[in-house]
């Protein structure tokens, strides 16, 4: 089974987002980078499928060339090779991003049985790239999947809707977008990390389509300063907490 997985490097935020003075970006000078949990689960699912069925996993990532480090982390857990589309510091809008990804996926020598992506990116949260890529590739798409089984070329996908799960089936080739909780991503082993150093990461340059959604600036929504009341600690705090629960009516 030949699987393509799309991943995106994002800053690992702490407890607050700090913007650059011009409000055009997050100040990442003090931040590390990683992937969204959705995409970590996407890579884990692909590696498990290839372990069970044979084949290979190719990663596609779009972003800053420094993202090679996060790509190598995923090669270390078992992906075979990667293509990094260099954005040259420009953030394409979702339409342009999907076109560039679809182009990169379809111009590979490998024909993919499955394209796995996160249901939405951690930062942009557009919820549309997987669907747009599917349309460009002429493939069916199942989104927000939290349970996945593939047998005889048919994928059975579950997704959570409120407290029930919907079941979808789709014949491969297909695009599937997944959510955190699909699996528990493994940690890279030391031999895995050694092997990852030798795996190929092709860097591609592309010209993006003109954006149709243009960012003017970012802002951070006002966080209500609540001025927490301290209840202290120990026995006295436990009694005070029970009083609070009575006051707000959750304990009668």
């Amino acid at each position: 089974m030949e699987i393509a997985v799309c991943i995106k490097r994002v800053p690992l935020l702490g407890s607050a987002i700090v913007l650059t003075p011009d409000g055009m970006a997050i100040d990442t000078s003090k931040l590390g980078f990683g992937l969204s949990p959705h995409e970590e689960c996407a890579v884990e699912a692909a590696v498990q499928l290839v372990e069970a069925n044979g084949g290979s996993v190719t990663l596609f990532s779009m972003g800053h060339v420094d993202g090679e480090e996060q790509i190598r982390d995923q090669l270390a857990i078992g992906a075979d090779r990667a293509v990094l589309i260099d954005t040259n510091g420009v953030e394409p809008d979702p339409q342009a991003a999907a076109s560039a990804l679809a182009e990169a996926i379809s111009t590979e020598d490998t024909t993919f049985d499955l394209v796995i992506m996160g249901s939405e990116s951690a930062d942009y949260g557009g919820s549309q790239t997987g669907i747009r890529v599917a349309h460009k590739l002429g493939l069916p798409v199942v989104t927000s999947v939290k349970g996945l089984k593939i047998e005889g070329g048919v994928a059975t996908c579950e997704r959570a809707v409120g407290s029930i799960r919907e079941v979808y089936t789709v014949t491969l080739p297909a695009v599937i977008t997944v959510r955190d909780g699909l699996n528990i991503p493994r940690y890279a082993s030391v031999p895995g990390r050694m092997k990852a150093r030798k795996k190929s990461v092709d860097i591609k340059q592309v010209t993006f389509d003109e954006p149709r959604i243009t960012t003017k600036k970012f802002t951070i929504p006002d966080r209500e300063a609540k001025g927490a009341t301290s209840l202290g600690s120990g026995d006295e705090a436990a009694a005070a907490l029970v009083d609070v629960l009575k006051q707000i009516g959750v304990l009668t």
Binding site: I17, T215, K216, K217, F218
Partner: peptide
Amino acid sequence: NMLEEAVV
């Protein structure tokens, strides 16, 4: 956690 002002 962050808002984007944009023109479509």
